[in-house]
């Protein structure tokens, strides 16, 4: 009989904080007054997201998102807005690049949690143990980077 080593812990993936953010996402909705925006889609699953940013004096003074997706993608986007609000643009970009890199790195395990330097974001580290769900967590961060870098493209995870 073929067997498989046990994968990630479900309770770690769907922590209370993740479920709460998925149920009641922060900064959710269209922001009419914005300096940057971008769309992201996952063509395989149909998840869609749009991120709105208002930049003022090199800082992100306001940020919101709207879209449809699973608990992981909505929670990740909600946490993104909370994390990046009031950050300098340079710092926010660093956060996003770091998040995507850690999520996609084969060498980092979920135990290596210190990298984010942010307790709320660290709850998403469990996603690394569910390889089919990593794209759910990273889509909004890629979309954020696209918006802040002024790229006029729809981000896709494929």
């Amino acid at each position: 009989m073929a067997t498989q080593k046990k994968t990630g812990n479900l309770k770690e993936l769907y922590k209370k904080l993740v479920i709460e953010h998925a149920r009641k996402p922060q900064n959710f909705g269209c922001m009419e007054l914005h300096s940057d925006s971008s769309k992201g889609v996952n063509p395989l699953c149909g998840d869609k997201i749009k991120i709105y940013i208002l930049q003022e004096k090199g800082h992100i003074s306001k940020i919101s998102f709207e879209g449809v997706g699973c608990a992981i993608s909505i929670a990740s986007a909600s946490l993104l807005t909370e994390t990046l609000k009031n950050q300098s643009v340079a710092q926010a970009k660093k956060y996003a690049k770091n998040f995507i890199m850690i999520m996609n790195s084969n060498h980092e395990s979920s135990e290596n949690k210190k990298k984010f330097n942010n307790r709320d974001l660290e709850t998403l580290m469990a996603v690394k143990d569910f390889p089919t769900r990593i794209k759910c967590a990273t889509l909004c961060w890629q979309t954020f980077l696209s918006a802040i870098e002024g790229k006029d493209i729809v981000v896709t995870t494929e």
């Binding site: 479900l10 993936l13 769907y14 699953c45 997706g69 699973c70 608990a71 992981i72 569910f130 089919t132 769900r133 759910c136």
Partner: peptide, 8 residues
């Protein structure tokens, strides 16, 4: 969401 159902 169906993906969450699928993972669980």
């Amino acid at each position: 969401h169906s993906h969450d159902i699928g993972t669980i």
